[in-house]
Structure formats: C-alpha cells, structure tokens
Design a protein around this nucleic acid. Structure first.
Lengths: 209, 209, 209, 209
DNA sequence: TATGAATGAGTTTTCATTCAT
DNA sequence: CATGAATGAAAACTCATTCAT
C-alpha cells in the first residue's frame, strides 16, 4: 500500500492554485485579476495561496514558467529532431496547433498577453530556453541549405509561431472558427515560405513518439 | 490655417491625454496603469482627464479606437487596392513594417496586449472595420486565382499579420535586433506562402501615394 | 489679508494625523493600533494618511521625532544653561514634571513604550540629540566638582529622568495619584543624590525664560 | 532527584513555550510578534501552544505573571527584611541590578514595555503584589524616621526602581555600556537621596541568603 | 475651466486560531 | 497528545473618481 490508494483523490493544492490562476489570468489578465477569484476557483482559502507563493507576482511567474515549460514539452518531448525536414515540420506543426486547440487557456495566457511588466529573470530565462532546440534544428537545416530564405533561424521560428498565433487569435470563437482546411493550408503555405519548394505531401507517420 | 496664431501654442489637452495614455498603456498595460502617471505625462491634472473621458475604461477604449484607426490609415490611405498583386503586396508590407518600427508604442499596445477584458462594442466594431478593405482585396485576388492557398481570405491576413507581429515581438531590443534582410526575406517568404510562386523581384515604385 | 483670516479654521490634516496617531499610539501601542482609528480620530479618510506618510512605520517615526523634539523644546527652550546649579536644576525639574503632567499622551508614548522594533536611523539620531545639551551641562558641572557622584554625566541624566518616569508611571490615575509634595520631595532627594549636599531651598525665580 | 533519569530529557513544553514567548516578546513586543516564531523557538508546533494556553493574550499574561513572580523571588527570596537599613538596601540593590544584568530579556519585557493594553486582572494583581513587601519595609523605615524624604513609601520604591530602569535603558549596548562604577555611584547617590545621610560604606556580607 | 487633495471601496497580504491527520 | 496546513477575518495599502477651490 502506498501513501495514497488510487481511489482516494489526493488534493494537490499547489496544483489547483496554479491551474486556477492560469484560467483566470488567461481570461482577465494578471493585473485585472484579484486574488479571491483564484482562491475560489482553486477551492482553497485566500490565505492558502500565500502559503504556496510569497505574493501574487511570484504566482504569476510560476504560472508562466510552468505553462511555458508545458508548451515546451508538448512541442518537443519525443520529437525526433534528426528526422527529415518535412516530417519534422509536420510533426512540429501538429503539436503547435494541437496545443492551441487543446490548451486554449495556456495558449491565450502565454501568447496573447504582454508579460514584460511582471516577468522576473527566471521566467525570462525559461522563456528563452523553451524554443531553443527548435531554433537550433532550424539553424542546422538552414546551414544545410534546406531552408531557402534569408531569415536568421530564430526569426524563422518567430515567423511561423507568430503566424499560428495570428490565425488562432483571429478565431475568436464567435465571428470566425478556424477550419481544419485553414490549418492544413497554412501548414503547406508556410512550408513553401521557408523552403521555396512545394510541400511533399501528407506527413509521414512515426516522426513523433 | 486654424484660429490660433502660430505664436500661441494651442494646447490640445485631449490629444495630450490620449498620447500619454497610449504611451503608458503600451509600457505597463491598461490594468496595471494608475491614472496619475497618465496625467503627469500629459501635463494635465488628474481631474482634467475626467473632463474629457467619463472614466478610465472609456479612455482606453478611445485610445484603442484612435490607435487602431491610425494603423488603418497608415496601412491604407492612398493605397491603390486595384494595383497588381505584387506591387500591392510590397506596398502593404512596407506600411506594415514601417508602422511597427516608427510607432512602436502603438504597435506594442495594439498587437502585444489582450484587450478583450475592457473593449466595448464600438471598439470591437472599429477593430473589425480596419482590416476589412485588405481582407476584401485579398478575397478578390483569391477568387481570381492569384492566391494559391486553401485558406479563407481573412485567415490569410491573420497569418501574414501574425507573422509580422511574431518577428517584431522576437525583436526585444536586447537579445535580438531585427535586420532589414530579415524583413525582406520574410516578405518574400510570405509571398511564396500565399501565391506558390517566386516573388517577382524588387517592388515597383509608385504603388502607394 | 493673508491667505487665511484668523476666523477661518485652516485645516492642517498632517497636524491632525500626527496628533491623532500620538493619541492612539500612546493608548494602545504602535503595533496594536490599526490605521482606521487614527484616521477617524484625525477626522480624515484612511487614504489621506497615506498621502502624508508613505506607510504606518513612517508615520510612527515622524510622531516619535516630533514628540521627542517637542519634549526637547519643552525642557530646553529658553533655559539658561549657564545658570547656577540649583536654580538650573529646579528649572529643569519643573519643566520635566510639567511635561509629564501636561502632555500625558506624549509622555506615555515616549517614555513608557519600547520603540526599538520600528525606529529608523533618523529617529534614533533625534533621540540621542534631544538631551545632549543637558548632558553637556551636567558634564560641565561634574567636572567643576559641583556634582559629587561617580556616575558619568549621561548616566546622571538617565537616572534622574528614569526616576521621574518611575514615579509618574506609578501614578496610574487609579491606585495612586502623585502629590505635589511627592514631586517636591523627589526633587530635593535627587538633588541630594547628585550633589551630596542639602537642597539650598525654594528655587529662585527667573531661571527660565 | 525527580522521576526522570538524567538520560531522558524531560520535555516540558509549557516551560519552553513560556521561555520562548518571553524572548520574542522582549525583542519585538507582544503585538508585533506572530505566534509561529514563538513555536519555532520553543521547538513545538504552533498548535501545541494552543493546547497549553487558550489564546495569545492568555500566553502573554502568563508570561507576565511568571516573569514578574520570578523578579519578585529574585529580589526577595531569603532577603532579611528585618536587617539594618544600609545592608538591606545594599542587598536589594545588588539583587535589582543583577536581575537587570543576568535576565536581560525578563528585564526588557517587564520594564521597558507598556503592558496595559493586554494585561488581565490576575496579572495586575500579581504586579501589585510583587513589590508589596518592599513597600511595606520602606514604609516601616520611613515611619521609624530612617527615611528622610517627604515621599510616600511606594513613591520611594517607584523612584529607585525607575532610576535603575533609566540607567539600564540608557545602556543600549551600543552607544553606552554601564560601568560597575556607575552602578555603585548610583547606589550611593540614591541612598543619600532617601536618607539624607552619607552611605555608611561597603555593604556587609550575609544579608541575603 | 483645470486642478489635485481627499476619499473609501477594493486590493494585497498577514496572522490568530482551528482541526484533520 | 502534537502537529502544521488551512482558513478567513482583519490588517496595510492602492487607486479610480469626486469636488472644493
């Protein structure tokens, strides 16, 4: 018998607080969100939040780092960076768009808000680190001549990432709903943008774990 | 000529307030910005702000509409939407990137922040209206077969616009400074993305006024 | 006509806040006193206190410095430190005891409470400075052989001052009320303590201004 | 010998809590001291404190009573109140000053802080009781004509006690360190104050147990 | 009309006390 | 019986808005 049988729900208050904070920060923004709604959504007392985080700013920074790291895992865990360009690109694209679709709060919080006013150094480090492997891979492809554009590697990533953010932002859930065909077309279009070649076709299986 | 002689500096308090508000909102965000810093930057008393705007939220909405409209003018005024695709695209690209470079506060405020928590209906209308002519033009090109991608017209605009925001956001002024060559390469790359053809060459002169 | 006719009561909110704070701090102590009671007693809103003092600790420090300085003036203003020992001693005694009697809040706050936990450097400087002239005068007398005790000058002052605090503290207004005869006897007794001579008699007039 | 062998350390939690509370109250004052630091210093959990004391105020009152009683014992246990005045005075003086020196926390807590805001009736009774034997002895001497001053007996005690507090308070450990000669001189000076006679000489041995 | 000091509702944060373990 | 995580009432402090000047 371990400390918790599978049946008993172990209450992880820190987890609940972080999740609740992400949800309300995504909705209202950090500065516009008072602490009590976070506590209520987390199912804890207000004071409890201050047992886990020294202040509101530390909380938002932890939310940022955690969520950014989660995005990093989502994009990269098990991704074979040595794969061929097109399968690798497709795998990355799939992960990127599925994150936006399946983790809308995380996506909205991370990508649609301006964090500079409160981000601390640790968070900025995390931010820079997350896409580093992708940037490196792109840079490798670029130097191998597989990427036919004059942009620096990181700029390429920023462009693709920004394009994805742009189209998901346009999907406001009310005036426009993104179609799967939009996403596929965007994927192929950006491939052309980067490689100056036609997309080879449907992505091969087995690139990601 | 207006009624003021050149010697008397015509103090346009409303103007100053709007400019000051844009500046501090761009820097700190709406919710994190108290009113007094706006007043100070505008060179007026706090009370004065409430003579021109009923409350802080009305102010930020007016800032939003004004700035969005300014962006619209910057992009569209004198732009010949009936021009050939490539020159039109180049002209639009030039306007877009020059706005980001020359009006960094406006760009940061409009594009890097999440306005949903406070935007009123009038502002949302303005937002939708600004890019409408562009969307219409794209749609026209698309239906004429000049745009070879399966995306809906507005999604194309969102993708290009998002890509531009993405690369300018990556230019944080500290870890990376965007090069002109990055911008030119991005322009050509996105042209390939949309048309599935090589960019025809340097943009022709005379497309925009 | 100056800015305020004598008839109109010019409201000095800072003054009111300091007075109110002294009153409630004297009664409850600094740490046990919330801000609202101070505001109420001062006849101002809570927020107003924070317009005049950055925080509660700054307020109590200012109260301390002001009150200490007031005590210093009460004891020393116009006191002829070059007077003969006995008249000077009597004048000082008179000022000391009248301060305790006429400014009971100031006396209780300054002398019956432990300020170390919150006193800042400026306040500590003020504290050290206030009795300095008296200490200097005593030292002069001591070196002239007029004070017949082996204590250091400042210790003499501390002893006399402590004795006065002790007897006023014993006067709790309920179980014991200090008599004038107690005070006169204490004055003469302490004179004997310091000089090893009998007190010469009733104090001469005209020592203080 | 008690029931515990020397090997097993008998943990007296109540004792530890009282000692810890005295230490932190002496340092920070009652109102400014949270409960957790007391628990930590006592080596117990916070909850444990509430098993021994109903609330924080009861704790501070018990600390007060205990410490006051300890002071009473220190001053009086084995003191021969029927001794001759000068030896008795010297013995008392020795106990008083040694308490201030050897129990600085107790001294600081009892004498340098204002307990009125939280003291309950039982504590006030204890306070009054402790010095009662001394006051009675003084009163006896006074009525026997051995004390030559017009002060009431309790006022005499208050003056001496206040003088001692005054000089020890002046010894802040930083700007001034009390010398033994200061203390001896103060003892003799106060003897002159009370008796209008010269101190007879060095204190006889054997007055206190 | 313009101002900025004043305000109190609302925010962040603390802490005495409880109670499940 | 001892614990310390959890709590919410209360504290410190902020700030959008008002209004006397």
């Amino acid at each position: 018998m371990n400390i918790h049988s599978e049946a008993s729900a172990p209450i992880d208050r820190r987890r609940n607080i972080l999740d609740a904070a992400l949800a309300v920060f995504a909705e209202q923004g950090y500065a516009a969100t008072p602490v009590p709604p976070i506590a209520e959504r987390a199912g804890v007392g207000v004071g409890t939040i201050y047992r886990y985080f020294p202040d509101k700013q530390s909380l938002v920074n932890e939310v940022f780092r955690e969520t950014k790291a989660r995005l990093g895992s989502w994009l990269l865990d098990g991704l074979d960076l040595s794969a061929e360009p097109w399968p690798l690109y497709c795998a990355f694209w799939e992960r990127l768009t599925s994150f936006a679709r399946e983790q809308p709060e995380a996506f909205r919080f991370l990508e649609l808000q301006d964090h500079r006013p409160y981000l601390d150094e640790a968070s900025r480090r995390t931010e820079r680190a997350v896409l580093e492997p992708i940037r490196t891979a792109i840079e490798r492809f670029r130097q191998a001549g597989l990427v036919r554009t004059g942009m620096q590697g990181p700029v390429i990533v920023a462009l693709v990432w920004g394009a994805v953010v742009g189209i998901f932002k346009y999907d406001d859930g009310q005036y426009y709903r993104l179609l799967d065909s939009d996403l596929d077309a965007a994927r192929d279009a950006l491939w052309r943008a980067l490689t100056a070649t036609e997309p080879p076709g449907p992505p091969l299986q087995g690139v990601s774990t």
